[in-house]
Simulated assay, not measured.
Amino acid sequence: MTFTIATWNINSVRLRMPLVERFLQEQAPDILCLQETKCPDDQFPSAPLRKLGYEHIAIHGQKGYHGVATIAKRPLEIVEKRRFCEIEDSRHLSVRFSAGGRLLMLHNFYVPAGGDEPNVEINPKFRHKLGFVSEMHAIRAEHDDASGSILVGDLNIAPLEHDVWSHKQLLNVVSHTPVETTSFEAMREASGWVDLMRLNIPYEQKIYTWWSYRAKDWELSNRGRRLDHVWSSPNLVPQFTGYDILREARGWERPSDHVPVIAKFDFE
């Protein structure tokens, strides 16, 4: 049986609720992880989600900024809403659920974007981003015979050369600078995570999940970046069967600049 987990930076869940409903009706993932919900917990639009069969909703939100939410067709146990860099931003939510005979931990992340200037001396947002990634070392891919871990979200870094439309032109652009990509990959590997989206994908193949609002014609220019990620503990790799990037969602009415990524697992 195919089990699917989707991740999507929705860029305001209340503003784009019609898009969320359309996505759930058309794709029906078992779990959907949203980022940048920009919504306090008591104003989260739960009713239309429950109407579509997503009865289990975990939220870590705040007014006007950031925010993550994980919604599911099956029971979720909220495990943690971690604070990073001693800042109260709502950027992390972990839940536990059962699938495939295992108890799985699912981390939903929204990493800081980092501002425009890749210099920690003059840009505190960039310093915050690097500090946040450093603290992610504590989020490990814990697993044993009866458990496993998955991490998804808008991680706001395109780590590999072909995760951006032009490696050379973006080397000094926040999200693809060497200090970001090096620390990001070192953190992922040290914490035991497997980058599922790059499994069995030729290195030179471009992968994008984000296209800027600034482009007059995003589809024609196709200047994308892979900012959204799906990782797992090594023991779940045999159950991973692939993923879809719903590129067409970038062309929906009043879209997010990110599109959904749907990871597929062979769980009973």
Rank of each mutant, 00 (worst) to 15 (best):
F267P: 01
H137M: 13
N222Y: 08
I207W: 04
F132T: 03
Y208K: 06
K206N: 13
I157T: 04
G242V: 00
Q27E: 07
I59N: 03
F265R: 01
D30E: 09
F240W: 05
R82T: 14
R250Y: 02
L199C: 14
H258I: 02
W193I: 03
Q169A: 15
N200P: 04
H60C: 08
N222A: 15
W231A: 01
H258Y: 05
A113C: 13
I10P: 00
L106E: 01
V13N: 00
W211P: 03
S212K: 02
H66F: 05
G64Q: 11
F267A: 13
L199Q: 11
N200I: 04
L104R: 03
G101T: 08
S46Q: 14
V237W: 08
R82Q: 15
Q169D: 12
P40D: 02
S183I: 02
Y213S: 02
I139L: 10
E117P: 11
D145H: 15
E36N: 05
E161Y: 10
S233F: 04
K129R: 08
V230M: 08
G101I: 13
T181Q: 08
R82S: 11
L170S: 12
R225N: 04
V164G: 06
L171H: 09
Q239T: 12
V179S: 12
R14S: 13
N235R: 06
Y203K: 03
F240C: 04
G131Q: 06
M1V: 15
R223S: 09
D42F: 10
S147M: 09
L32I: 13
E248M: 10
Y208E: 14
S46I: 06
H176A: 15
E117W: 11
L220M: 08
A141K: 10
P260S: 08
I122T: 12
V261M: 01
V133Y: 10
L104I: 12
G192M: 05
T37N: 02
V120C: 14
A249N: 10
